[in-house]
Amino acid sequence: MRYRLRHTTSYTYSWAVDISHHMLHLALPDLPRQRVKSCTVSTSPSAGRMSEQQDHFGNRVAWLTLGESHTRFNVELRAEVEVDPVQAPDPEATPGWESLRDALAGDGFPVPVAESEFIHDSPLALPSDEAIRYALASFTPGRPVLAAARDLTGRIYKDFRYDPMATEIFTPVAAVMQKRAGVCQDFAHLEIAMLRGLGLAARYVSGYIRTLRAGDAPVSGLPNTALRGADASHAWISLWCGPDHGWIDLDPTNNLICSDEHVTAAFGRDYGDISPVRGVVLGGGPHRIGVAVELVPLA
């Protein structure tokens, strides 16, 4: 599937910002199943200085400085990207989850060092006792890891209400468990915390999900109305399913194994590692933020 992507973020300040520095995780990466045909990031006002490099996780990150006074800051990503469908393994044919837990803990040889980085707690994905108990209902003894994770993903989809007003950016996992409500970021943090609480490796993935229009064909067998989180940046998880299967992406917001309806922007331990736009400003005062996303298939 080939897509045209447009992602705009606007900040409107109460009074002038004299100078600001920003870090952007917006530029799309080339991945084994994802080929970036074009990708441009522009700002208004134009950046006085801008540089790009890779972060610790291999994501593309841009640093920029706005040295002129401004009351509004706009960032726009425009891209064309091609994504291949996933040939997901049979969940029942994946390794037992305890064997992966033990290998990640150092009982296997060789220890998968890169994957082991993602078994540890991170600030926005802290497991609670309640969350671990919830996960254990899916992760019964000896169950294949992807079968258990698919079951957990489906339970989160069923038991937790999608409600943009229920949480804020830094709502902790324990609060999401109590509210039984949130948005894609919350559900990703929740499932990651549960999986790490069981000793498994799980990553936070930011990106985009296909924008569906009236008359579009269903995606992954779901009706159009089931795709939650479109028209905004999206988030899901990636679970390490062993050396034979690698990382498998799961979307708890839509109860999917991610395929060619998802476009990846970056991955990290949680949202704090890869927020699309963040920065430090001198001045500005209270401000409003507007975000708009469109990910549309190209004929």
Rank of each mutant, 00 (worst) to 15 (best):
M177W: 01
V61C: 13
A217H: 10
S116E: 03
V205Q: 01
D159H: 12
S220T: 05
I119D: 02
A149W: 01
S51I: 10
P243N: 11
I192G: 00
I192K: 00
A292P: 00
Y157E: 09
M177R: 09
H189T: 02
D121M: 07
T225N: 09
L136E: 15
V205A: 00
Q178R: 13
A93Q: 15
F187M: 05
L28Y: 07
L222Q: 14
N59V: 11
Y134V: 01
L227M: 14
A174E: 15
Q185R: 15
V61S: 05
A135Y: 10
L298R: 11
R143Y: 04
V280R: 03
R228M: 10
G207Y: 00
T43V: 12
T65W: 06
R72D: 12
S99Q: 11
M50I: 09
V281F: 04
W236V: 00
N255Y: 10
N255E: 13
L227F: 03
G48E: 14
C39W: 02
V280K: 02
G154F: 01
D270Q: 07
T211N: 03
P45M: 12
A166K: 06
A201L: 06
T211V: 09
S10V: 14
S275M: 11
R49L: 14
I289W: 08
T40G: 04
T71D: 13
R133A: 13
Q34R: 05
E130F: 06
R60N: 15
P223H: 08
L152T: 09
P95R: 02
V291G: 05
H22E: 10
V176S: 13
G215A: 04
A149P: 08
G268N: 02
S206C: 04
R4I: 07
Q34T: 07
G207R: 00
A79S: 12
R213M: 11
Y157K: 12
G246Y: 04
G197A: 12
S220D: 14
S116D: 02
D84L: 14
H70R: 06
F267V: 05
P252A: 03
F139Q: 06
H287V: 05
G106L: 11
G229Q: 00
V296T: 15
V61Y: 07
C39R: 04
A131P: 11
C241W: 06
L126F: 09
S20Q: 12
L195D: 11
R180S: 07
Q185K: 13
L190G: 08
